[in-house]
């Protein structure tokens, strides 16, 4: 299944990415190549194979409900370019 120009624009918009016009074709080719590679799997008869959501044969990995220290506010905000009143300030998303 080939990725269309519209697919690229749609996914880019969902992720709020701006892809320069001249790169759309290249992204389209790369994404198509990835899909094609993964599509190899569908050439096999997998009717009696359970879907694998996880490669490890492990279930029920969890932790007890015991609090651990959080980051101090200034450390939490250390990478924020434009903090305000202890908050991360970001452009409104439309």
């Amino acid at each position: 299944m080939a990725i269309t120009r519209e697919d690229v624009l749609h996914v880019a918009r969902l992720a709020r990415l701006e892809i320069p016009e001249e790169e759309i074709g290249r992204v389209q080719e790369q994404l198509s190549a990835i899909l094609e590679a993964v599509g190899k799997v569908s050439e096999l008869d997998l009717s009696d194979v359970e879907p694998t959501s996880h490669p490890l044969d492990v279930v029920n990995a969890w932790a007890e409900d015991e609090p651990r220290p959080s980051l101090p506010q200034d450390e939490a905000l250390a990478n924020a370019p434009d903090p305000e009143d202890g908050h991360f300030r970001v452009p409104a998303v439309g």
Partner: peptide, 13 residues
Amino acid sequence: RCENVWGEAPNTR
């Protein structure tokens, strides 16, 4: 394992 609390100063949990 950050605390699940309501009404604390912002970004302290």
